[in-house]
Design a protein around this nucleic acid. Structure first.
Lengths: 148, 148
DNA sequence: CTCAATTTAATTTTGCGCAATTTAATTGTG
DNA sequence: CACAATTAAATTGCGCAAAATTAAATTGAG
């Protein structure tokens, strides 16, 4: 690529991915509003619906987020009584995060979201799978590049 | 996909793209730090390096961002004397944003970034182009879905 | 021409992300 | 055992994003 071309906005990988990320976020928003969840809160709930209970650390490892982001998110989810927190008796540094009954029940409604979303996106099942596959691979490659 | 699979974190398109976006941001960060620019400030500068001067509205259309985000960003760029603002005499509602000499000069250093980044990412030129192409297409499709 | 509707930008509020610092608990080494 | 190093989480500060509100300038229909 010519140097002059290379510095143009629409040739930046960062810009296409950044716009796409916000646009996909926007696609989810109406569905998440029905649950009164933000995007990040939804991601946290996804982890908890799989694991039932985990530490702050495990949550961070799953989502690639640190306590600086997660602490306030969990605070809000706990205020809404979707989660509760207690210290791990075996290691008082750790905080165990668990779902309340209300939090568990929310999974029923949330289970509708992935299907609705694919439909709304206009992607076929195959396109969706391929895109997910490509993104996941690229993510691993970039994570590799960032840790070298 | 099974319903139970569909609600898992790692099968969410939103999560893969969101992680990827933050990871790519992280890839840029050391280079942007050298210019003392944030990611969003860099995107604004990319537009200005192409257009020399534009209105707040045009900037927002290019970046898919509104004045709620851009006003404070431009305020900081102007405080750093990379840009300056004045009202359009033909239409006093419009704000014209232009590069200062210092802002123009910064392009020289910034022009190195795209190349350095591809190298650091570990992607081949072909992979980079293909990824950019795929993202741009998908962006358009999702934007379409969001405006329907 | 006039006034309602539209356009443009700024501001306010809420909630992330991330870096850096702090605090408390645990672990490892001599 | 002692104490330095490490680990887990919370906190602080800054800079976005997005929604909603406000204000000022312009446009357009009657």
């Amino acid at each position: 690529m010519e140097k002059d071309e290379a510095i143009k906005l629409n040739n930046q990988l960062c810009f296409s991915i950044y716009s796409l990320s916000r646009e996909i976020n926007k696609l989810y928003r109406p569905f998440l509003e029905e649950l009164s969840l933000t995007y990040t809160q939804y991601l946290v709930m996804l982890v908890l619906w799989e694991k039932e209970s985990c530490t702050m650390k495990e949550l961070g490892d799953s989502l690639f987020l640190d306590s600086g982001t997660l602490s306030p998110v969990l605070k809000r989810l706990t205020e809404r009584a979707l989660t509760y927190r207690k210290r791990d008796p075996d290691d008082e540094r750790r905080v165990l995060i668990s779902l309340t009954e209300e939090g568990k029940q929310l999974k029923e409604t949330a289970a509708e979201i992935p299907g609705k979303l694919i439909k709304k996106s206009g992607l076929s099942e195959e396109e969706f799978s391929k895109t997910l596959f490509d993104f996941t691979n690229l993510l691993q490659q970039i994570q590799q590049a960032n840790t070298e």
